[in-house]
């Protein structure tokens, strides 16, 4: 499903964000991308949504080298990938349901489809009662759930979540993890970047650990050195 072949990313000024990363993620997997701030997690996710191109190597999704996607086609490619950004990125002047509707309308869905699908997703993420609220009126956990609902609304094959529990209390974080696990059990491949060790600990999933742009471990469950 996802393949990284000797991928390096060097930012202007010579900062090496990723160095010769090799990894493969199979369809239907739930993978934690664990690492401290600056370890290269966000860069790796940005490669997967074609916000960045690798300086060297190849990034592939479903066998397609993302560097070969023409600039004009990037928006169409992104509709197949659900992305929950670190800053949540909800449209502040749109209500909860409008945020979801926008993602659908931007992807070319009709008003009829929006009316049918948005309430379904809001209900699935327990947000139906908040559908007419603006993002500023929501709690952190609710905002994250809206961002997840928006990422899922176009039925993506891959869901990427960048620090979705970053600013949440432990209980809310567990709730968000449960939502992502539920999505995964329905067949969507999930890649979640985090530096939240307790969250990773409670879930016996695959953990890829990054340090200074390099993959230092790839294990099922938390590696011992990280646990310590």
């Amino acid at each position: 499903m996802v393949e990284f072949e000797d991928v390096s990313v060097e930012y202007p000024g010579g900062v090496l964000a990723l160095s010769e990363v090799n990894l493969t993620i199979q369809r239907g997997e739930f993978v934690f991308l664990l690492g401290q701030t600056g370890s290269g997690k966000s860069t790796l996710l940005k490669l997967l949504i074609r916000e960045l191109k690798p300086t060297r190597g190849r990034v592939m999704i479903q066998g397609r080298d993302l560097s070969t996607i023409p600039e004009k086609s990037v928006p169409f490619f992104r509709r197949k990938i659900g992305f929950v950004p670190q800053d949540i990125g909800l449209l502040p002047n749109k209500k909860v349901w409008e945020n979801l509707a926008y993602a659908m309308r931007a992807a070319g869905h009709s008003r009829y489809e929006v009316r049918k699908r948005v309430p379904e997703f809001l209900e699935r993420l327990n947000l139906l009662h908040r559908s007419s609220a603006f993002p500023r009126a929501l709690s952190g956990g609710e905002q994250q759930r809206v961002a997840i609902a928006r990422a899922l609304i176009n039925n993506p094959v891959l869901l990427l979540a960048d620090e979705p529990t970053g600013h949440l209390d432990p209980e809310t974080s567990r709730g968000i993890l449960a939502v992502l696990e539920d999505i995964n059990t329905r067949g969507t491949t999930v890649l979640m970047a985090t530096h939240d060790l307790p969250i990773v600990q409670q879930s016996a999933k695959r953990v890829i650990r990054l340090e200074r742009g390099t993959v230092v471990s790839d294990t099922i469950g938390l590696p011992e050195e990280a646990d310590a």
């Binding site: 928006p75 993602a103 931007a106």
Partner: peptide, 16 residues
């Protein structure tokens, strides 16, 4: 700016 960035992330085309 932030909204436009988000729009791009959800797959809004340049024309949209």
């Amino acid at each position: 700016r932030q909204e436009i960035h988000t729009m791009r992330l959800v797959g809004a085309s340049h024309a949209t």
